[in-house]
Structure formats: C-alpha cells, structure tokens
C-alpha cells in the first residue's frame, strides 16, 4: 500500500472492451493511489469480488455506430448493471460515461462536440454539491483541473430530465468555461443513488506528479468511505429494489465485505 493519500486499499475492476485505450492509465493511477486493480475482460461477468468498477475511456468497438452503443451489449454490462443496481460503485470515464448512458444507468446522451472537432485540452471543472459518492462533499464549490479528450462529449438530456438531475443533486461537475457545447456546461453526472458516476474529463491523467498536476486523485481517493459504509451494512439493508437506501449506510456494524482492508 502506498503511503500516499489512502487509508484503505481497494480492489478495482477495470473493464476492457475491444477498443478501450485508457484502461492501463486507470490502472496506473489506481496503483499510484495504493489500490489494487485488475482488468475485467468484456466477456467476463464475475464482478462481485471488486469493491468498485471502472469503465475506462477509449473507442470501444471503434465507436462506429454511436459511442458506447455496441459495448453496452457486451456480456459484462449485464453484470455492471446488476452491480450498479445493488448500490455498488461504478465510475465511467469518457467512453465509459457514454457506455453508461447507452446502458441507461445514467440519464441523457453525449452528442458530437459543438465545434465538430475532437478536443484535447485542460479543463477547469466546478465541483457541484451533489449526491455523488465518489467525491468528498467538502469539495463542493472548488475547482479541479482535469483534461478533456473527446469528440462526443456534448451532454444532452431533455428539459424534464435536466430538472430532475438538478432537483436530485445529480449534476456532479460543470465546465467553468463552455467546452464542447454541453447542456448547462455539464461535465459529469451521477445516478440518484450517487453510486454510478459518469464524467467526460480524464482524472486518471492527472494523478501522477511526473506528468503534471494531481487533481485527479480526488476522484479515486474518497470512494472508500462509501465502500466501508456498504461493508458495514449487512446485505439485509438492501431495500426491495436491490439498491441501497442511503439512510441505511450509517450503521455501526463493522462487518467488512468485498476486499476492503483497513490500513494498520
């Protein structure tokens, strides 16, 4: 375990679709943060052993039909959907975000950038006050510098959905300056439970001092709290829908599930 920022080492599953190309970067970033990370091939379906799942960036299936449209039907996605619906943490970065919207785990869709060009550049992100479990609530209102790198990052949803996202605190990140034409400058959203988080920027690219800033660490170093919370709740606390009720997550029970290990 690295002495870096984490008190807890988690075991992440990083899904690899044909055409994914940021999976190694995610694994590298997670290792830097002292986590364990395994690649999960898109045909594997066993996810229970992981504390959290990452859908990394890239061009799954060439993104030929629509970004994420084909990957969404990979065998692993049935398991990801079940995993997410069980209240366990899933993060989709860039292409991963696109796949999560295609899989309807997150609302809306990602359109082509307004300027019709691929955009790779640093972006200033405002952290919104949200229900997202992946970021420390104390970060709300602060600005993180995380690069974007996409051709289809222009977030869209209908007015009703947007109102719901706002009402439920599901808008997690906004671009400080308009970047790609995104509705309301949205850069990242989560589901109602806050356990499924999708964002276009690439936090894994800014975790290593050797290559620049480390603002990206915030995205992988807080989720352990939520995982400990789930761990400390027995499975009986799952509500009837199979998803976790956030009120149930404050139990004093110290049972640990998954592979969470507490630092000595």
């Amino acid at each position: 375990m690295s002495a870096d920022t984490n008190a807890v080492s988690l075991k992440f599953g990083v899904v690899v679709f044909p055409g994914s190309n940021c999976e190694q970067d995610v694994v590298h970033a997670l290792h830097l943060l002292g986590h364990e990370a395994n690649y999960v091939w898109h045909q594997d379906t066993e996810l229970a052993c992981y504390d959290a799942i990452v859908l990394p960036g890239g061009f799954s299936y060439g993104d030929y039909l629509r970004c994420g449209a084909v990957a969404r039907f990979s065998p692993v996605m049935e398991s990801v959907i079940a995993y997410a619906n069980a209240g366990r943490p899933v993060i989709g970065i860039c292409n991963g975000f696109q796949i999560l919207t295609e899989a309807k785990l997150l609302a809306g869709a990602l359109l082509q950038n307004r300027n019709l060009k691929f955009i790779c550049e640093p972006a200033s992100l405002i952290v919104e006050k949200s229900v997202c479990k992946w970021l420390d609530p104390k970060l709300a209102g602060s600005v993180l510098e995380v690069p974007i790198n996409h051709n289809e990052g222009n977030y869209f949803c209908d007015a009703k959905t947007l109102a719901e996202l706002k009402e439920n605190g599901q808008i997690v990140l906004r671009y400080r300056q308009a970047a790609n034409g995104s509705l309301d400058n949205i850069a990242g959203i989560c589901n109602r439970g806050g356990n499924v988080f999708g964002l276009m920027p690439h936090p894994e690219r800014v975790c290593d001092f050797a290559t620049g800033s480390t603002d990206g660490r915030a995205f992988f170093s807080y989720i352990f709290r939520y995982i400990l919370e789930i761990a400390s709740n027995t499975k009986n606390n799952l509500n009837k829908n199979g998803s976790l009720n956030s009120d149930d997550l404050n139990s004093d029970d110290n049972n640990i599930i998954g592979n969470v290990e507490v630092a000595q």
Binding site: L65, R66, A69, F73, A109, L111, F156, C157
Partner: peptide, 8 residues
C-alpha cells in the same frame, strides 16, 4: 435497441 438512440 441498437441502431438508434431514442434519447437523441
């Protein structure tokens, strides 16, 4: 299911 995305 696949060829179009009904959201957009």
């Amino acid at each position: 299911k696949l060829l179009a995305n009904p959201v957009i």
